[in-house]
């Protein structure tokens, strides 16, 4: 038989296995989310549990978000000016910078950075707690680890992400302003006026924030799940951390496309 034909069943079996594994994973994650939601009562009754995690998830990501936002703003200012001046419409620099940031780059880059900074930290932390039997110890102490450890981190991530995205966007706009107005010399009035005329609070700012909220849920959920589900050894935790970055990044980009098409189409 032709070797190519011979290989077809194996390929099909591989694809099938891959698909089944994907569905299995999706089911597990959904179930995990449900568990978190059911056991969220403790987190809201004792809000300091969430505050504490907001500190670790949010404040620790703040520096990287601010620095990245500033540089992305610089680059947008330079590139935007370079292109716009060919059409003699440098005044539109403000609206270009602001729209790119508020609609796309703010939510997406923040989510990617968040996955790398906070997501991995969450996975590693939960994974290590599992590997060192801290989660088991908690269970045997009659303290539900989902309620006590996972849920507060989940809500902290969900709360922090839109905040970080807003900070990223505003710092980015400021970066664009520095390059465009201060360094290159675009008219300051036109920069802000065009921006305000072109950016709609509901269509652009709010949609951007909705995106970042969805990304916050996604990234935090994946990070926590991978940590909670990891093989409890040093190698297992390392793998889970890698998976967090890979899966979150791909999911963010795919979801971004879906959400954007919804927002441009329907709203």
């Amino acid at each position: 038989m032709n070797p190519v034909v011979k290989a077809i069943p194996d390929v099909l079996r591989g694809l099938g296995g891959w698909a089944i594994h994907g569905l299995w994973w999706l089911g597990h994650v959904s179930h995990f989310l449900l568990e978190i939601l059911i056991h969220s009562g403790t987190s809201f009754r004792r809000f300091n549990l969430i505050t504490r995690e907001i500190y670790f998830v949010g404040i620790y990501s703040l520096i990287i978000i601010i620095v990245s936002g500033l540089f992305v703003g610089f680059v947008l200012g330079l590139q935007g000016y370079n292109t716009l001046q060919k059409y003699a419409s440098e005044q539109a620099l403000g609206v270009l910078v602001a729209l790119s940031l508020v609609r796309e780059l703010g939510p997406v880059i923040t989510a990617l950075l968040f996955a790398g900074r906070a997501g991995t930290a969450l996975t590693a932390e939960i994974g290590l707690m599992k590997a060192t039997e801290q989660l088991s110890a908690m269970e045997i102490m009659a303290v539900d680890p989902i309620a006590r450890v996972v849920a507060p981190r989940f809500w902290a991530g969900v709360i922090s992400m839109p905040i970080l995205a807003a900070i990223f966007s505003i710092v980015g706009v400021f970066g664009g302003y520095i390059v465009g107005v201060v360094l290159i010399g675009v008219d300051e009035g036109a920069f802000w006026a065009q921006m305000q005329a072109g950016v709609d609070v509901f269509d652009d700012v709010l949609n951007g924030e909705i995106k970042s909220l969805v990304f916050g849920v996604t990234v935090t959920l994946i990070a926590l799940f991978e940590g909670y589900d990891c093989y409890p050894t040093a190698e297992g935790v390392a793998r889970a951390t890698t998976r967090t970055v890979v899966i979150s990044s791909l999911t963010i980009l795919a979801l971004d496309f879906v959400l954007t098409s919804f927002m441009l189409g329907g709203w």
Binding site: M129, E133, Q134, E139, I140, M141, A142
Partner: peptide, 14 residues
């Protein structure tokens, strides 16, 4: 479980 205590292999301290 509140009436049980368990000592894990390496302590499992938080």
């Amino acid at each position: 479980r509140r009436r049980m205590g368990m000592l894990f292999q390496f302590g499992a301290l938080f």
